[in-house]
């Protein structure tokens, strides 16, 4: 039995230690938001957070995730929508939408580390692939989410 903490909930799963985390999430924990695209860590559709880092769950053995904090698209926001998801809706980012959970999870980590990324920062950090070509809007939405934080911060500071 492996102990997993996913989206703040503890689970015990009886799976092979080498099973990639992706399949534990999708087929054993009924969390299908995380997607299979390539199985080789090439496309990023399977991106989740592991102790706050963006990782590709299709090549990560579940044993390497045991005891760590795993967050999936289903758990990105505890109440409603994360600001990145709001920006994604506002800018109509998804087309087919299949790669978008991975995109959003990557973007969330980028903004945690770098609250005001430049275009070049986004190019470097966002290596997720999108077949529909939503890249321009991904970039716009990341900038919009970044500005939303910037705009919110002075107000919060005043309050304090």
């Amino acid at each position: 039995m492996l102990k997993l903490n996913v989206n703040g909930r503890n689970h015990q799963v009886d799976v092979e230690p080498e099973m990639p985390l992706l399949w534990v999430l999708r087929d054993h924990l009924n969390l299908p938001g995380t997607k299979y695209g390539c199985g080789e860590g090439l496309c990023g559709a399977c991106t989740v957070h592991l102790d706050g880092k963006a990782v590709r769950s299709c090549t990560l053995p579940v044993s390497a995730a045991a005891g760590k904090r795993i967050v999936t698209i289903e758990g990105l926001s505890k109440d409603g929508l994360h600001r990145i998801q709001e920006a994604w809706i506002e800018h109509e980012v998804p087309q087919c939408g299949y790669c978008q959970p991975g995109m959003i999870m990557s973007a969330a980590v980028l903004l945690e580390k770098n609250p005001q990324p430049t275009d070049a920062d986004i190019d470097a950090a966002m290596t997720n692939l999108c077949r529909c070509g939503t890249y321009l809007r991904v970039k716009q939405a990341i900038h919009a989410a970044a500005s939303a934080v910037k705009a919110a911060k002075p107000a919060a500071a005043k309050k304090a």
Binding site: P32, T34, L81, I89, E92, G97, P101
Partner: peptide
């Protein structure tokens, strides 16, 4: 789009 952004099981 909202369901796709939330990772709902639509596919």
């Amino acid at each position: 789009i909202p369901d796709k952004v939330r990772g709902k099981p639509v596919f």
